[in-house]
Write a protein that binds this DNA or RNA. Structure first.
Lengths: 277, 277
DNA sequence: ACAGCGCTTCCGTCTGACGGAAGGATCGCC
DNA sequence: GGCGATCCTTCCGTCAGACGGAAGCGCTGT
């Protein structure tokens, strides 16, 4: 990224080059030397040096005792204002904790970005089944519970792109055909939950439900991931659904409003959680 | 910030202006129109427009349906690589969950930045005592449990700055004199835990312990905040200490290494958690 | 119809970003 | 202790691209 296009002679605007520097940091290489930054961004040393120094001065990057640069705390502070990120997370945490406490498995919260999901939060016990997602990480939507829940309620045009697009296979159980995906998405809309069984790793299964925002559109999805041999997914559905509904209510979703106190019965027939906007 | 210094005629470098735009977003105003951004940064409309567009193109900002700009998910993704931030958080979460589950109160993780603490994580039950910290938020170190725990093991020069500097008062119980702070910090070093009683809000009390990194220096602090009338702080000390030690071990701190299996006794006399670096 | 507001586009000016090159600072090796 | 290798830092003349005033656009309210 931010390739200097040295061949064409065109030079990208400063802003893009600065962002390119940030982009150079990845989960695999969260600490880089100046030289590495240059290699990854294609920037000349002198230029990278200047820009990096400005980033450090502000706190967007930090320089460790070892001389390597890392992403700085200050950047994280600003980023924690992202409304689709930590804001949502904040509202969701108490409900995620409930779910975690009841199961001690992996409880995840994710949003959709393009055809991928981005994980906002994950609670997982030391003894929970291992999932290789990371807070802040991405994953193709079609293969995950949260992804299916989000996709099912996404912009129809986006759904078509997903159905048309290449569907990466992770296991023999991964949804790989457009036809199959279309059927599953319809099913998700009908039932209000998504169940992804062994699609990423054969031994893991996830149950996910959509979370609605203040305008009732689906803004996120809550899921729980368990070992597939030890759980009946149907047993998890009510808990996940209740959690997602709780979060939706905390966000002010009209469809999740608590019924008038007189008639309040939290576990009545789910009043159409699906079929958002 | 990023004031254009229009009077002096000097113009800050592009990078600083871009960062200034990010800085314009605050917890109070996480969504800004272009005009507001201009007011806050002092940038001319045309300039702000161009820079903001570049930020949106990359994903550092997002533009909502209402036309307002917000911090983007992409920025948060990069920021989640900050080692002092989410990296630490990741290692700490399981232990924080244990502590949360045992008490259902507020469990917090924070690092020191200058004379302030930055909160990396907070678990809190719906019925826990209300604390007005926010993940990603800051607070003066001298008034909080985590702050005292961190300060006590910080660079001596920094400690002196804290002792000398003005100490903001929040309640009649807030530590406000340098003498008192010095004494408390020594006490924290001696006992290995910090207890902050009613320093921020009279009815809340926190117990905090330092977390050690791979080089045994103190990198973070773990705390629990409870209503002061319902808990004996001494009862919480072992749990907080154990949690902090667990995190330290997960981070690879030599001082927190589990003793050889033969002699393993997890709850023996605490082998000098304090006295780091 | 017009004023007010916020956003977007245009384009000539000139400044500050650019980066090649030279100069440290450390290492490890012989 | 000389020498190459690696990585970082500083300098400074050049010129491209950032800059921002001004004009235009699309609202909304009166």
């Amino acid at each position: 990224m931010t390739g200097p296009d040295r061949r064409t002679g065109t030079r990208p605007p400063v802003t893009r080059r600065v962002l390119g520097i940030l982009e150079a940091f990845t989960p695999e290489r969260p600490a880089l030397t100046l030289t590495e930054i240059c290699r990854r961004t294609g920037l000349p040393m002198a230029t990278a040096h200047r820009l990096v120094n400005e980033l450090v001065a502000w706190g967007a990057l930090e320089r460790g005792a070892d001389g390597a640069y890392r992403v700085g705390l200050r950047l994280w502070e600003v980023a924690s204002l992202a409304p689709r990120g930590p804001g949502l997370r904040e509202a969701a945490l108490p409900f995620m904790e409930d779910l975690y406490e009841a199961t001690h498995q992996n409880v995840q919260l994710a949003v959709l970005d393009g055809l991928e999901v981005v994980y906002l939060e994950r609670l997982s016990g030391r003894d929970a089944v291992h999932v290789f997602t990371r807070v802040g990480g991405r994953f193709p939507a079609h293969a995950t519970g949260v992804g299916l829940a989000l996709l099912a309620h996404a912009d129809p045009e986006l759904q078509e792109r997903a159905i048309a697009g290449p569907l990466r296979r992770f296991t023999p159980k991964t949804i790989c055909s457009g036809r199959q995906l279309r059927r599953v998405l319809a099913e998700v809309r009908r039932t209000g939950v998504a169940i992804s069984d062994g699609q990423v790793e054969l031994f893991a299964l996830s149950v996910a439900a959509p979370v609605h925002g203040p305008d009732d559109s689906v803004v996120a999805a809550l899921s729980i991931v368990v070992p597939s041999d030890a759980y009946d997914p149907r047993a998890l559905v009510p808990a996940v659904r209740a959690g997602a509904r709780g979060i939706s209510r905390a966000l002010g979703a009209p469809s999740a409003r608590r019924p008038p106190a007189s008639a309040a019965r939290e576990s009545g027939p789910p009043p159409r959680i699906a079929e958002g906007g």
